[in-house]
Design a binder for these strands. Structure first.
Lengths: 250, 250
DNA sequence: CGTACACTTGAGATAAGTCAATTAAGGTGG
DNA sequence: CCACCTTAATTGACTTATCTCAAGTGTACG
């Protein structure tokens, strides 16, 4: 199993952050940007499949995803794995470990990922001097909680077909808002990941995805899911989508 | 369906809060206590079965549970219900609504519940003037996220028996830390609640609970689950328990 | 004394899991 | 350039877990 390894540590100044211009994110004041820029210690690039953070590790760093896809997961002792959520540009990772001392989940890269690395010890300074950014961090935590609520509803109460439709629609909507698709609509994910997210076996996942493909909602490609009809997926899932509006990020 | 209704609005001063002396909670400075006391607008008492907060409601209040048990849940259009988590003394409810404008889940009282009511608009003041309390709120949000992670793992990957054992052990551990049991070890919950938490039907839940009872881990009582062997439940579930240590609350 | 609600239980139906074998694509080393 | 390996996706057959339906018990409460 590969572990996170820096390939280079060029540092994009936050003032030129490629994410900030996106309409999905709220605008920052000059002071905020200045502080975040000082808060940022460097960048980290990891390969697809690399482990970014490991469960039970102490003194984790705090990261913001700058580019790429990843996922958070937990495992039982005998190897059963549950994917909890996916991480995409703008997402904060390692907050639990930073605030409460120990990570209780792992994070793995789905594609090559670049991360902004933040000084763990400066987090208190952020709370002391920039209440608006502190509020943003709480906002991000509350948003993650919302997403987990919806996933829980999905796994607990939706049928396999609904669950699969929900998950793909969810990933599609998030990626679309971040302008992550260039050309196609392909989500870089494996059927095993979908199975481990939905709490299903891989065989049953495969048969379920075939049904969605049969309805012309998706098409499976080498190494990914091509979304043909996001609206249709939401309808199958009985899911309204996430609330609109700009979101913060650090 | 009953809705939250104030029965009286006596206000316990935060300096005399019955929760603060508990070893489970961190100590607060005099300044923090003073601010929280001003932040608190009053108290609300609701009956068992009352709805404290409703999904999609705007301008919700922010509450801290002072006494009693409740639960957060979401529903699908056709009535399928998923219980997301339980709320107990010291838990903050309504944060999502306060921070992001709209609640996306409901909260219902399991037993008679009393709540501290906070001024929603003063939250920004808290962030501006009391960074340590702001940090606490983030801590609470991150803790909720952790719990949801574990629930997700449970529903997605544990067997029915493991799930049930985990849930009961989880509720038992939380309640024990809060000294909620006087005399017995009875969790005031219905089998329907357990079913809706585990994502199982009530029939199968009943049969699963019988198995746990057969192993002398629990005993079912009128209107509640009597825990006989918390350690044994954790062992069945393959669950290590939550991290120890003091926690904050507002 | 009747009604409501929670809990039980058995039996048959259905969803999902497991096992096993096959195909297809990509990567590697000779 | 080809033989070989690995990984991901696919499919069929069978087993198991869980659901649904239906009926019955017990207790609390008006």
């Amino acid at each position: 199993m590969a572990t996170a390894k820096p390939t280079h540590s060029f540092k994009t100044p936050c003032e030129q952050c490629p994410l900030r211009p996106l309409p999905h994110f709220r605008e920052f004041s000059r002071e905020e940007l200045e502080f975040v820029s000082k808060f940022k210690r460097g960048e980290l690039a990891v390969d697809a499949g690399a482990t970014i953070l490991v469960e039970a590790a102490h003194s984790a760093h705090l990261f913001t995803v700058l580019s790429g896809w990843g996922f958070r997961y937990k495992m039982l002792e005998d190897g059963r794995r549950q994917i909890l959520n996916y991480v995409m540009p703008g997402d904060l990772i390692g907050l639990q470990g930073t605030i409460m001392g120990e990570m209780q989940h792992s994070v793995e890269a789905l594609s090559p990922v670049t991360l902004c690395v933040f000084e763990r010890d400066k987090l208190m300074t952020l709370y002391n001097r920039h209440p608006s950014l502190a509020f943003d961090i709480t906002w991000i935590a509350a948003q993650e909680e919302r997403i987990l609520d919806e996933h829980l509803l999905s796994i607990g109460r939706r049928t396999a077909l609904e669950r699969a439709a929900y998950l793909i629609a969810f990933l599609f909507e998030r990626a679309r808002k971040l302008s992550l698709f260039n050309g196609g609509n392909v989500i870089p994910i494996t059927q095993q990941h979908i199975a481990d997210t939905l709490g299903l076996s891989i065989v049953h996942t495969n048969k379920t995805l075939k049904k969605l493909a049969g309805r012309n909602l998706i098409r499976w490609q080498e190494r990914g899911c091509d979304v043909l009809d996001g609206e249709g997926l939401m309808q199958v899932a009985g899911w309204e989508g996430m609330l609109e509006g700009k979101r913060p990020f650090i």
